[in-house]
Simulated scan of single mutants.
Amino acid sequence: MNFLIVLITFVLMEGATWLIHKYIMHGFLWALHRDHHDHSNEGDLERNDWFFVIFAIPTIILLYWGVRNDFSAVFYMGVGIFLYGMSYFFVHDIFIHQRIKIFRHTQNPYFLAIRRAHKQHHKHIDKHEGECFGFLWVPVKYFKMYFKKSQ
């Protein structure tokens, strides 16, 4: 049952991420997210990196609360969010944006589709008229582009 809670939470985080990205990061918190699109930051960190802190706080609270309550379901929800956050870090920051220069030459169609959709998202440097707000699931047309090539 606990594994199921972690898995469901992880999957639901994709929808939450889409909503947060479209309506909050490209909405009233655009001031924090803008430098991720226009590359106006100087140095290794962006104002956008504050979102890691913002999203870590509820995760830590859920984990703490769940431990204090004998590893209740809340703990496993926190684990699901934590695992999603780690996935986001590895795929978005390391693979897509190459903050650490590894996995540059993949031929995996799934990862190529995600990278392509993210590039489409970044072609818009303002907060309006964006596309591809998801993370692990992007519009099917990007998957079709690369899965056809691999067959």
Rank of each mutant, 00 (worst) to 15 (best):
W18H: 13
H124G: 14
L63R: 08
K119N: 13
F28A: 00
E46D: 08
F51K: 01
F111D: 13
C132N: 14
R34P: 01
H26C: 11
M77T: 11
I20S: 15
H36C: 15
N108G: 04
I96K: 10
R47Q: 14
G134E: 09
T9G: 04
V74L: 11
Y64K: 12
R34T: 10
V79W: 06
V91H: 08
E42P: 00
T17Q: 15
I114Y: 03
A73K: 13
E42I: 09
L63S: 14
V53Q: 03
W30A: 09
W30Q: 01
H122M: 03
L12Q: 06
F90Y: 11
I102L: 12
F90E: 05
E46V: 01
V11I: 13
W18Q: 09
F51T: 07
H118T: 02
F71R: 01
N69M: 03
T59Y: 06
F75T: 03
W50S: 09
E131G: 03
G80T: 11
F95H: 10
F55D: 13
D93Y: 02
F133T: 06
Y64G: 10
G66R: 06
I8F: 12
I100A: 02
I57H: 08
S40N: 07
H21I: 05
L62G: 14
R116T: 14
A16K: 05
I57N: 01
I102V: 13
I114K: 04
Y64N: 14
I24K: 02
D70E: 08
F28T: 05
H124R: 12
I54C: 05
S87W: 06
L45E: 15
H37C: 05
N48Y: 09
G85L: 07
I24V: 09
I94A: 06
K123Q: 13
